[in-house]
Simulated assay, not measured.
Amino acid sequence: MGAVRGCEIPEDLHYNIENNVWVRREDDGTVAVGMTSYAANLAGEIVSYTPKKVGKSVKQDKSCATVESGKWVGPVKTPVGGEVTETNEAVAGNPGLINKDPYGDGWLVKIKPDDWDGESGDLKTGQDALAGFESKMEADGFGGC
């Protein structure tokens, strides 16, 4: 498990650093999408989660869910486009799971990607992701999780 400024950044996931989201390939060919611990820390305690509906098509870098905290409401932009195949019922019942376990039980949606090979090329993993988040946190003036 990697970490940058106290924020966990698992090195085996794929990240869109600019949008502060991660994606994990699942055994069935779908991908799980979620917010990073950095994004969850910036947002504060998440109190609402509204995912796109199952069967809905989402485009790369467009919203796959909307989340709300006491100080922020905004879209979570998917790193890859495709069809939403599953939403997280546990998070629907307890949006705070996004803060408590952003890389585990706090995932947001699962998507069947339209073009994983084409759209995942710019995503960062491992040391590249850690370095990218360090640069982003520096630019954002972020003190740490």
Rank of each mutant, 00 (worst) to 15 (best):
M1S: 11
G2Q: 08
V4N: 05
E8K: 12
I9M: 08
P10I: 00
D12Y: 07
D12H: 13
Y15E: 04
E18M: 13
N19M: 11
N19C: 09
R24Q: 10
D27H: 10
G29Y: 06
T30S: 10
A32L: 13
V33G: 09
M35H: 10
T36L: 04
A40F: 03
N41A: 15
L42W: 09
A43L: 13
G44T: 01
E45F: 05
Y49M: 06
Y49I: 02
P51Y: 00
P51N: 05
K53Q: 12
K53R: 12
K53C: 02
G55W: 09
K62I: 09
S63L: 15
C64R: 01
C64T: 12
G70D: 08
G74P: 03
P75G: 15
V76H: 01
P79K: 01
E83S: 03
V84Y: 01
T85M: 11
E86Q: 14
A92Q: 09
P95V: 06
K100P: 08
P102F: 14
G106M: 07
W107D: 13
I111F: 03
P113R: 05
D117G: 08
D117Y: 11
E119K: 01
D128R: 13
L130T: 14
L130Y: 04
F133C: 10
M137W: 00
G141R: 05
F142Y: 15
G143Y: 06
C145G: 14
